[in-house]
Amino acid sequence: MLVLGQDEKAKYPFLADAGEYLKDKGFSLVQFGSDPVLKLSVEKALHRIKVAAAGEVYKSDLIDGQASKDYVLEREVFSFLLAIVLIKLTGMSTLIKRFALAEARRAENYLEKDLGNASNKSKIDLATRIIYDLFNIEIVKENDFFVIPVSDYLIHSVTFHEREWKLINRHVENGKVFLTPDKTVRLIRKELGNYISSKIINAPKPSMIPGLENIVNELISLSKKLTPTYTITTGEYPPCIKHAIDVLEKGENLPHSGRFMLATFLLSRGQTVQQIAPLFKNAPDYNPRVTLYQLNHLAGTSGSTTKYACPSCEKLKTQDLCFITKECDNIINPSQFGKKRKQ
């Protein structure tokens, strides 16, 4: 197991053993319900969860991964560990998912910075050690790049839809792929999220801590208000649509043409405007009123009565929205996907 310094624990709190950490510091969980000073950490934990629930990444009090005061570092770790305790107490899986995602993003930022920190070898070492310990990928620094075996690269990148991630679009030499720090970290994003959520899921559920009941209840009602993340049964959707949903679920920006494709496709599959609208919720520029208006327009339920059809594969190719695979099987429009063509 990695030996971490205090500031490293603050950056990568999921590496710390919760129980041990508290014991080390001489605290028990129950104290957090009553002790007014420790309550600050509880508030911070609550804030951390709320930020994650809103789909954002919590900004810590660290500056460049450092803090001037020890207690700041300590509170960083406490708030993470407490956040997990609180989430466990709510028992809400939506919160687990969102929190893990946000924390993974946060860790990703630090890993990227540590890898890119050319002047500090120990930081690079730590980041590569974390990646090796957690995901069993051996990364070696070579000049400005990180090199990893082609097979490892393929195993992790094969689920990415962007053409940029195809092996042919990477520099490959001697059985190794050359990556910049940000790509290196991007490669393990999903695993990082999975790692953190499995840590939360596998953590034992504590019994209620007196004094925290209100906070837990607040979180439960917050979680209920969250629209459940749009889960789809994959397989029946073509790659272009899966990709668009992926992008939105990650809170990344999908160009207008992509939103048009997605909405018209789902409408053509008989989904209602109300079912589709929540999909766009994570988009950086989300506005519920505008989204509903636009969707209704596409569906032909408002204003004009024209119903818009999903663009052709050919058109989507020119818009860089096509991620064709074998399963597309020569169809000319995504809406034909998976339906056997009549001869």
Binding site: V150, L154, S157, V158, E164, K166, L167, I168, N169, V172
Partner: peptide
Amino acid sequence: ERSELVDYIMFRGAIPET
């Protein structure tokens, strides 16, 4: 993964930026 190797060997799916 093997299909990605195939694309690499056949030079398929390259983008201009690369």
